[in-house]
Design a protein around this nucleic acid. Sequence first.
RNA 1: GGUCUCAUCGUCUAACGGUUAGGACACCAGGUUUUCAUCCUGGCAAUCGGAGUUCGAUUCUCCGUGAGAUCACCA
Length: 478
Amino acid sequence: MNTPIRTRFAPSPTGYIHVGNVRAALFPYLLARQQGGSFILRIEDTDQARFVEGATDLILDTLEWLGMDWDEGPRKGGEYGPYVQTERREIYLQWAQKLIDKGLAYADPYIPEQVQSFREEAIALKKPFLYRDHRPENPPAWDGSQALRFKVTDPKRYTWNDPIMGELSAGPEVLDDFILIKADGLPTYNFAHIVDDAEMGITHVIRGLEYISSIPRYLSLYEALDLACPVLACMPHIMAPDGKKKLGKRDGARSVTDYRTDGILPETMLNFLASMGWNDGTEQELFSREELIEKFSLERVQRSGARFDEQRLLWMNGQWIRRLELDDLYERVRPYWPESTEEASDEYKKHVLSLIKDRLKTLAEVSMMTRYFFEEPTVDESLISGNKQLSKLTDDERRSILKASHDALESSEWTPEAIQETLNNLLETTGEKPGTLFSLVRIATTWAPFSPQLNDTLALLGKEKTLARLQTAITPGV
RNA sequence: GGUCUCAUCGUCUAACGGUUAGGACACCAGGUUUUCAUCCUGGCAAUCGGAGUUCGAUUCUCCGUGAGAUCACCA
């Protein structure tokens, strides 16, 4: 009987959360859920300079929105807490003491500027810089005011197996005496995450590719601490739209909150991010959270980076919107109605929504797509002049067609079917083509570049409004 | 520059060493007797280059080339 796996997401609260961050949470989440294990959330806030107030809440809110529930961590607690690194200082110091006792950690007598000059010296000589080449003979006893460094005693080549990348290795030249505890008393990521992962029983570490070159250092630290090494997996980056480098905040990576505001569904975001760099080998494109959990595997994760294609995201969002039940969609779209809809009944708005559901790519689009159902539209002559058929007609010809339409509709029953029949009859009596007649009536009643099927639109708009808008369009001066 | 990694349509990707190299997005054309969209048809479009192994290479090996990551008292 295997012990249940434990995976984690360990973000830094340094600002907004972008799609790359979310995907770094998604893969460990999916794996934990699939294997019946635990997904742990840990806040890595040891960089006080980059700490941003409120960033943690933003991260937690985003994960909750996406339905990526965690088993232990902030807002949840758990038996391995605290789950915020600045609250774990004592733990790091205890582990650091173990290394000191073993002679595997020592105080750095230099200040950062001195180390920097060593580094520049090496660069000037075109030699790779290694701190251990400058390792002090008799370092002072560590009193907590200096940085504490790890002592690499046996630089060697490490080889390890990454479930995504395959067999990896790196030589001794990448091993160095890195800093464990900074002069401010807080641990570096390199040290803290090893300690935390061990203390929290993490079995699978899944993180971005940028960590791959540091892994030999982690391996040497696991050895020094006599710790079993968890499974280490690195996943490829999401690339910036130009495909040149990993997506980051400086490249205008949009926050997940922005996509949420635009009306991207959490289903879409999950599906889309999982699909970037993973597929199940079939031709399936749309995966629900449940399907992702069932089918995900690290072995099928792509090894190369993928660009974030917003057009594909929009297409996928449209697909997910279409899959929603109308009532569900109505609830989600609630914040997006224009102000003029406040008076309208839920029933009417829901009906409007049903007509445009197939047209939506984002929830935010309801606003611009439905205005004419709630307020009097503004006449836009360019809709006529820009229309191939309609621009050929004179004003009088257009009025005459609209007049005929008005009169026919006036005596029509007001159901979608009856309206369609009336419109069809009108084609015969006026001798106009559908492209002319229907377009003209559509524009005169909505003044929108596009709208749902004409008979449905008129039926919902109501006889009174339809006739009034046609009358306005017939009135000279329009 | 050192180290490490990656490489199939414009983009996301599929293909036990044997396929007319498949699908999706985008784009183009047509259909669903009005527009936009949905939906359906069809079209365009790819194995980075060179050696080698093999009867046969997108797939394995090597060398190039290109791209990315990393070399912090950041994570």
